[in-house]
Amino acid sequence: MSEVLHAAAVSADASRIAPKTVRMKSFGVGSKPTLLISLATAAALIALWWGITELAVVPRLFLPTPGEVLTQFNIVLREGYAGAFLGEHLSASLFRIVLAAVIAISLGIPLGLLMGLNRWAKGILDTPIEFYWPLPPLSYLPLMIIWLGIGETSKITLLVLAMFAPICLSAQAGVRSLPIERVNAARSLGASRFRLFLNIVLPTALPEILTGIRIALGVGWSTLVAAELIASNRGIGYMIMSASQFLATDVVFVGIAIIAACAFAFGAAVRLFERALVPWKGKS
């Protein structure tokens, strides 16, 4: 009845042929690669665009061909547009968003952490944040202009406000995600309050904070371009606005492509940061 079987001899034989591997069927997308599908879709969309323009279904004025957009990009690159070189438009936009991001991060992280740690800080700061955070930033842009003028200050303040809330809220959520066992473990190892904050609370909140920064940058780009459309004489958003007034659809396309590339680059940079700073994310 209770025999001990020696299976080892059998498997030695089987190792000569490549074994057939199997896998449990997953539900949903799981970890199946999607890159090729995405690239094919992009190619198909460009082909569709090209096809529509070739067949002249839509007037050129409304939808330029891919070739025209490319040519226009070269022209704008060489000669500039709407009173400034492309580099000047781009650096005006980048300056605004980077400066605003730096301010929003250096205010949002400490205040968010404080709100996660202190009842008074949370009670006091919750009120204004919960009030203004759901508002679309453009709804208070006029107010910014009345108070701070049409210059850089009003646009950067607007951006800071738009980016501050997601960073602050995520820093708070990061503190809340701290398990009490982790705190107790550190305290029983002799951690002072300062050490507890620096070596336990801060790193625990870091993944959430980075997620918050990524969301903030997304909000930042949409707010920036909208603000530039309304009140500016430099910047990619302003370039698009000027082009639209002359029905220069190809320049509008160039502007949109540049914004898309920038926003993508920012997102990729944060993801690289995440990989370097929180390699354990999703693994424990």
């Binding site: 398990p179 066992e181 029983s188």
Partner: peptide, 27 residues
């Protein structure tokens, strides 16, 4: 709490951002 009483929990409370030796060295 204090370092004169070492605690081992059921749920592991190692710090995921530190390697093994730095986790041991935390105290």
């Amino acid at each position: 709490p204090g370092a004169d009483r070492g605690v081992v929990f059921q749920k592991d409370t190692l710090l995921p951002w530190k390697n093994v030796i730095d986790n041991v060295a935390l105290g």
